[in-house]
Design a protein around this nucleic acid. Structure first.
Lengths: 225, 225
DNA sequence: CTCGCGTCTGGACAACTGTCAAGTAACGTC
DNA sequence: GACGTTACTTGACAGTTGTCCAGACGCGAG
């Protein structure tokens, strides 16, 4: 029966429970093998069920994968909310953010490489695009919450747009992930250092320096002339 | 016969010529379909030959793909050399770099998404790692030549390490590529603007401002105490 | 107990994959 | 012009894939 049109049986919906259970199994397998190399039979082997059941709960492979990744990412776009809320100073937020970035690579490298796998895949297969773009936007928002709160705590202006901010941290993160996966032990410490350098650069000058610098800049223009 | 042990026939080596010809066909197909979905028969269809010939010139699919991508990237790691050499001012270099980044997305989007496909793939398949890491290093060097020359022309110090510089520009580039591929017409103009913002941030303060700023910062520390 | 529906199994299918080997055509050299 | 090497084609192989389906299981309602 088609899942979307099926009649639900009980208030506690076991159908969705099973979907989530299978999503977990799928994530485990996908993170290990990657999207292309993972077959439905592989996923079933990582679950208590046989391969036929997957088509009972999901229309096809694509729906299963999309659902699984969305299911995972929903959890992790709030990974830094704690740090953002608790931090009392810009420095504390910076350190918490950097540490947590490195920590999640250590803990969930397979999930992250799966995400990048799917994002790239979406450049070839447009059926994945909606899912990917939605998640990407959620991640951009996540980074933006960090950057704006950081600016607030530092009493400075953000001088970088949300898209750029996400892109540059994503670049650092992805590079660190690649190095980490290839067995480079310096990947994570390096990432922490890089974030310490980069996050302050998303901001403008210190407020009481702003005026002075503006003056200096005008003077410079004169000097050049 | 195994290519690597075969005896070469003539001074003008037609064996390598054919390899390159097949690499071109492979790149065309891989850029269109992605690594996972491209079969050797697909590649052969984009060439004047039949599918069997691929195993005459390459040991297996992996060698073909590695060779093809290396073959392509060798050409494009020098894409910005002209701009670096010709530019007479920091501003000119900045504009030339930003424009060329956008231009290559417009012209060679399939090749770029293929590169990202393979780089992600290398996180799952270690047989790809050597090839990927070598190319990645070449790209980092490429970016570093631009950043250092930019700093030179601007008479300022680079205050970002090579790895970070590559990672952040790669992040912007990849995000722009994704948006471009999904049909967003603002992707490329946005990228140009982002690069204009970012490249100056790889540098420290203007030299005649450095001393003044240093003094200001020390004063700040006192004020905070 | 039994019926019916929701759940799940395991096999079958056709399509496709990388790889390879046997056979054919083209080429250059003697 | 004949011969042998090189270059290329074609068909076959074994394995894997997503998908589907007929049937079996099990649980709750009547």
């Amino acid at each position: 029966m088609i899942p979307s049109t099926r009649s639900r049986r009980s208030p506690v919906d076991r159908f969705d429970e099973r979907r989530n259970e299978l999503a977990e199994s799928a994530l485990l397998t996908l993170g290990e093998l990657g999207y292309a190399r993972t077959s439905l039979r592989d996923i079933a082997k990582h679950s208590p069920y046989s391969h036929g059941v997957l088509h009972y709960y999901f229309a096809d492979k694509l729906e299963l994968v999309s659902y699984s990744v969305t299911y995972y990412k929903e959890r992790c776009v709030h990974r830094y909310d704690d740090v953002v809320q608790r931090s009392q100073s810009a420095q504390e937020l910076l350190e918490g953010f950097a540490d947590k970035l490195a920590e999640t690579i250590l803990d969930e490298a397979p999930m992250h490489r799966l995400w990048y796998d799917l994002r790239v895949e979406s450049m070839f297969d447009e059926r994945l695009r909606d899912t990917v773009l939605r998640i990407d936007q959620a991640l951009e928002d996540m980074i933006w919450r960090i950057v704006t709160r950081y600016a607030e705590l530092a009493d400075r202006e953000v001088t970088m747009d949300p898209t750029s901010a996400y892109a540059v941290f994503d670049g650092l993160f992805q590079a660190a992930l690649l190095k980490h996966v290839t067995g480079d032990p310096t990947a994570l410490p390096t990432l922490v250092g890089q974030v310490h350098q980069l996050l302050p650069r998303t901001l403008g000058p210190l407020p009481h320096e702003a005026a002075r610098e503006k003056a200096a800049r005008e003077k410079t223009v004169d000097a050049v002339r």
